[in-house]
């Protein structure tokens, strides 16, 4: 895909959002809530949890507007897409106060046979996160799977 088709979003890493996200995944590690504890653990400020970037994945396709219900609606019903997983590389810490630019590009789709027959189509979005110093922080591959089953088939 050409560069001009990339979606780009710049966001600030906020302490309150980190605390909200950590609570939502049941992670009570004090480094996510207390700057002193984060510094004692070697971070310059409160770090983002490992999957915190998801917050921006939901915004980026809407140009930074508030998230809206997605077009792909998951479920076992035939012909629908579902979330396949992620492959995440961590290159630098992501810290409260960082101003991060996320660039998202679509990869070429590929097909595989499903475990229960039928064809599965895998779509991979590659998201690169760069901080305010121009350092690459993370690379996230977001994998979506769609099935070729006919509607109604389980």
């Amino acid at each position: 895909m050409a560069d001009d088709e990339a979606r780009i979003l710049t966001m600030t890493v906020e302490r309150g959002k980190i605390a909200e996200f950590a609570r939502a995944i049941g992670d009570n590690n004090p480094i996510y809530f207390d700057q002193t504890k984060a510094r004692a653990a070697g971070f310059a400020d409160i770090p983002a949890p490992p999957t915190f970037y998801e917050v921006w994945l939901r915004f980026i396709d809407f140009g930074g507007d508030r998230p809206r219900p997605q077009r792909t609606q998951g479920g076992p019903e035939g012909g629908s897409g579902f979330d396949g997983g992620r492959e995440i590389e961590y290159l630098k810490p992501l810290i409260a106060g960082d101003v991060v630019t996320m660039t998202k590009r679509d990869g070429s789709p590929y097909e595989r046979e499903g475990r229960r027959g039928g064809k599965l189509t895998f779509k991979v979005e590659k998201c690169e996160l760069t901080n305010q110093r121009g350092e690459k922080v993370m690379v996230v591959r977001n994998i979506t799977v769609s099935t070729s089953k006919v509607p109604g088939e389980r």
């Binding site: 995944i25 590690n29 480094i31 949890p49 490992p50 997983g85 492959e87 961590y90």
Partner: peptide, 30 residues
Amino acid sequence: AMGMLSAGYLSHLVGDWLGPGNLRNLSFQF
């Protein structure tokens, strides 16, 4: 539940065990 809620729980395990600042790669399939 969203897959990423369970994946968030998994990241909690990994962070408590190996250190959240020590991760280099994390991959998972639902």
